[in-house]
Amino acid sequence: MANTQETLRERARILLEDGTLDYLIGWEAGRFEGQTTPLIIRTVADVDRLIYNEYCVHLLAKYPLADKTTKKIGVVVRGCDARGINLALKDGQIERDRLYLLGIPCQGMKDAQTGEELKKCRECTHRNPVVYDELLGDLLEQSAVADRFAEVNRIESLSADERYDYWADVFSRCIRCKACRDVCPTCTCKECFTDQAAKGWQGKETSLAENQNYGITRMFHSGERCLECGECERVCPKGLPLMQLNRKVIKDVHELFGEYIAGIDDCTPSPLDHYQLDDVEEFM
């Protein structure tokens, strides 16, 4: 980990100096031990604030999208960030030539309180960045992942009422802070359905019914493009098991339409954007 940080700083200094980058997005240390926070470095002087350790949990793929200018942006990308960048490119939110991607193979981040590897990293299927301009450190061999859909299968095995009660209890706790939407790399809409109260999609009330509407519709919108980066679960202040929604979608998509890895490249259309004539037929 440590020498990766050194090479990252070294490369950052060079790239900023020779003007290939207007600024670089990475992480810096937070106030407390084991806490990090994203960092935008514009000048060489700040390069020493740049860090790379086992607590860099934030997904950086969404940050460059806010910059609508023509500046050249450097982004440190691990497996999930790289797929996030691919998703943004597929959705036409940013041009590839404005990005300079520093790829880092990721061994998985740790939870500052417990010290163990985060759940989302244990279940990560793409530790190596799928797209990068430069690779810092050599590619890791992708370890087999334990059954990611175990929890989904468990929920599916419950009876209909038990499933309803399980999810009703989960969504009764939701406070609609929309952190899961704002962190998600698939959510780049200008005005989200949940902010369109006048149109009638979703009221502003935080009742169980509105929370369920929010949860299910977000599952429907983002699920088929989910990168399984686990950020929604990390940022949820109420600790709701949101990944079990996306995992369910991924499981169904694999079963029905064949393997689809979101963000593996910046061109394959997502499952619901195209069809096969011989798709599964259940409605005759």
Partner: peptide, 16 residues
Amino acid sequence: NDLSMKCLGCGTCAFV
């Protein structure tokens, strides 16, 4: 500018 670039624009801080 730099501070707000990393802000997601969610409501967690206000709601807690």
